[in-house]
Design a protein around this nucleic acid. Structure first.
Lengths: 204, 204
DNA sequence: GGTAGGATACCTACCGGACGGTATGCGGCC
DNA sequence: GGCCGCATACCGTCCGGTAGGTATCCTACC
């Protein structure tokens, strides 16, 4: 595909610029002109790498999966992994433009529903998997359905991230994630397992 | 202002049509042409009542406050009111186009940040007020901060509504709200108060 | 190791159309 | 008859996308 190092660099510049603009404006309000300007690239260069605005957006959405793939848990307690993942995701939302843009495009339902659902489902499956491990380890409260809980947790994180963005431009995001765990964990995990967990942000 | 009954009718038709289109497409992707078409009204009629697309969107956002104003609690337990409010809101999201459009416009941040924040803050204040009442009634668990919890709850409802919309077009919204309460309430209210609550949808 | 020549990577100018908004006219209720 | 409520036609702009040319690089053959 892309053979030269320079080509990869411009492609990446376009991708990051597009993610930023999509994050700030949303898909429909984002203009190619602004992406071009921010990437410092001409129209021809962009359309060489991405054939349309939609294809560019899809590539940005992919960045979400890429971020998940790079993340590695630092413990073997499934619930602790879940907590840490929440914080790690919060930091990624603050720092990584690709994640930011990807999330906004996923949340905004519009022309391309299919990849949005896929991205969403990826998160839910990840969380459900962790919760099922937790249940097998006896960490979950009885009666907690991993599938339902995974839906609630991903939804809650989505919404908290969103409200934090609208209200404070995500300045209080990490704190709010902490407050979510404080409120949510008593209904989710066994009291004795709860005592062993660290609810604080352990991001190194 | 609007003197004739016919004028009120067309104004309302425009408002509802706009809310629907905003709900389905978002602000930027919504076109005046589609709103016009759906309202069965001409351009002149619309621009007589609303001077711009933005003004129309702001009027739709107002509908949110209008809905809250009409809602009356059916109990005097603050936490039970909160639960009922969640379900009532879910049903409004399913049935009331103005609420649907209003929520989408509030959620997607864009040109008019000020009214969005106001609408959001209205919900948070409402929930916080209920939680403070609950604390005074001794229903809250010790250590629960009403302000923080209100932020978490509104955020969670927002996100759950959104994920339900993306994944199932809101078909499972009511069930998901129930799952949220199931998971959230143990961390929020005193066990003995929890026993007195009805977590199910009590919408008559 | 120099150069032909094709592929890769990119630039510039332009186009069709859709979109938000306006100007102006006109009928009907008070 | 006058203003409220609407209809119609039109306008300027901006936007996504394309056409076609050009530079840069890689490979191969001498």
């Amino acid at each position: 595909m892309a053979r030269q190092a320079r080509a990869l660099a411009t492609r990446q510049a376009v991708l990051v610029a597009a993610a930023e603009v999509f994050d700030e404006r949303g898909y429909a309000a984002a203009t190619m002109a602004e992406i071009l300007d921010r990437a410092g690239v001409t129209k021809g260069a962009l359309y060489f790498h991405f054939h349309s605005k939609e294809e560019l957006a899809l590539a940005v959405i992919e960045g979400q999966g890429a971020w998940i793939a790079t993340w590695k848990p630092a413990t073997d307690s499934p619930v602790q992994i879940l907590i840490d993942l929440g914080y790690a995701f919060a930091h990624a939302l603050l720092d990584d433009p690709l994640v930011r843009g990807s999330i906004r495009l996923t949340i905004e339902h519009g022309s391309f529903t299919q990849p949005q659902i896929a991205a969403y489902q990826g998160w839910i499956d990840l969380v459900r998997g962790l919760l099922e491990q937790a249940r097998e380890a006896g960490e979950l409260r009885p009666g907690v359905d991993p599938g339902a809980a995974a839906g609630v947790i991903t939804g809650a994180v989505t919404g908290i991230q969103l409200s934090s963005q609208v209200l404070t431009d995500r300045r209080d995001l990490v704190r709010r994630i902490g407050e979510l765990w404080t409120l949510l964990l008593p209904g989710l995990v066994e009291p004795r397992a709860l005592a062993r967990l660290s609810i604080a942000d352990r991001t190194s």
